[in-house]
C-alpha cells in the first residue's frame, strides 16, 4: 500500500508555481525524507498531502487511495508543522485535552507518560517551554493519535544535536513498535541518512529524485578517470555532477551497471549528502525515480 501517492501535482500562487508535475509514491512502513533548498516546494507538498491546501492540478492520496485532507485521511494522518505551532497560552494539560476533543481516538495516558519521561510538566504553559520541548510536545500529541502516517515538516530545524537525537529516537521507536510510516522534510541531511530509507529531492518546485536510499547509493558512484574520456562517459551514462582537474575527471555517475564504465575508470562510493547536493546543483536534470534495483535497469522514468 502506498501511504502517499501524488500524480502530476501542482500548486500555483498567483502566476508562480510553487510545485509542478510532482509524481511519486511512498510505500507503507517507510521513513521517507523530503529534502530541498528553501522555497523548493517541500512545505507546499506536505501541506497538500495533509489537506491544508488544495492542489491547483493533479491529485494526492494517502493510505492507499484516500483523498488527501478528506475526513478519512485526517483520522489516519498526523502532522507536525514547521516550528510546531501550538497554542502558547494553553497549559500542556489543556493542549492534551484539546487534542483529545479534536480526535475520535486519542491516547491521553501514552501522551502524558511520554511527556513525563521528557520532563515536560502538564501545568506548564506551552509558550514557556523551550523550542525543543514544544517540538517534543507536538510530536507527543501527534503520536497520541496513533496515526498510520506521521508527517513532519522541518522537525529538527530548531533543535540542538542532542534534542534532534531524542526527537528522532522517539519517532524511530514508534516506527519499530507500531509500524508507523513517516515522511519528514529537513535540511539536516546527515541526520536523515541515519533514519530515512526513502528520499525525495524537491528542487525549484519539481521532484528531482524519488528513490529508495539504498538503491540510490548503489546506483551512484564517483567515477575518476581520464578527462578526455569524460565526454564519452557522459553520453553513455547519466552524469549528475562533474569536476575536471588537469587530465583527471571526477564524475558523479548514475547508472544501472556501474561496472560498464570501463577499465580506465575507478568507481568509488559516495555519500547520500554528496548525491543530494549534486542533484540540487543541477535543477534542470530530468526527474529520477528509482524504486528498486530491478527497476533500475530502466534507470530513468519520465514523470
Amino acid at each position: 500500500m502506498n501511504v502517499i501517492e501524488v500524480a502530476n501535482l501542482g500548486k500555483q500562487y498567483g502566476k508562480r508555481w510553487s510545485l509542478r508535475n510532482a509524481s511519486f509514491s511512498i510505500d507503507a512502513g517507510r521513513v521517507a525524507a523530503i529534502v530541498g533548498p528553501n522555497g523548493a516546494g517541500k512545505t507546499t507538498l506536505l501541506k497538500i498531502v495533509v489537506g491544508l491546501i488544495d492542489p491547483s492540478e493533479g491529485s494526492a492520496t494517502v493510505m492507499g487511495g484516500i483523498k488527501a485532507g478528506s475526513d478519512n485521511a485526517l483520522d489516519k494522518v498526523a502532522f507536525v508543522a514547521q516550528d510546531a505551532p501550538l497554542y502558547r497560552y494553553l497549559k500542556v494539560s489543556d493542549t492534551i485535552a484539546l487534542a483529545k476533543n479534536l480526535n475520535r481516538s486519542f491516547d491521553v495516558m501514552v501522551t502524558t507518560q511520554r511527556l513525563g519521561k521528557l520532563g515536560i510538566g502538564l501545568d506548564h504553559r506551552v509558550g514557556k517551554l523551550s523550542g525543543g520541548q514544544q517540538s517534543q510536545l507536538a510530536l507527543a500529541l501527534a503520536l497520541g493519535r496513533h496515526p498510520s502516517l506521521l508527517i513532519l515538516d522541518e522537525p529538527l530545524a530548531r533543535l540542538d544535536p542532542l534534542a534532534r537525537r531524542e526527537f528522532m529516537s522517539v519517532v524511530m521507536a514508534e516506527v519499530a513498535n507500531e509500524g508507523l510510516s513517516v515522511v519528514l522534510s529537513s535540511h539536516v541531511v546527515a541526520e536523515l541518512e541515519r533514519v530515512a530509507d526513502y528520499l525525495v529531492v524537491v528542487n525549484a518546485g519539481h521532484i528531482q529524485v524519488a528513490s529508495d536510499i539504498d538503491v540510490l547509493l548503489q546506483s551512484h558512484c564517483l567515477a575518476t578517470g581520464p578527462a578526455d574520456e569524460a565526454g564519452a562517459i557522459s553520453q553513455t551514462f547519466s552524469v549528475v555532477g562533474s569536476s575536471i582537474t588537469g587530465r583527471q575527471a571526477r564524475l558523479l555517475v548514475q547508472a544501472s551497471e556501474l561496472g560498464l564504465l570501463g577499465r580506465n575508470w575507478e568507481c568509488s562510493s559516495v555519500t547520500l549528502e554528496e548525491i543530494i547536493l549534486a542533484y540540487l546543483e543541477n535543477p534542470d536534470d530530468e526527474p529520477l525515480v528509482l524504486d528498486s534495483l530491478v527497476e533500475n535497469v530502466a534507470a530513468k522514468v519520465q514523470l
Binding site: L74, A81, L141
Partner: peptide
C-alpha cells in the same frame, strides 16, 4: 497569524466541524 491552524486543522475533526 500564529500558524496554529496547522495544528487545529490536521486533527481528526474536519475544519468545518472545528
Amino acid at each position: 497569524e500564529s500558524g496554529t491552524y496547522q495544528f487545529a486543522w490536521t486533527q481528526g475533526t474536519p475544519r468545518s466541524s472545528w
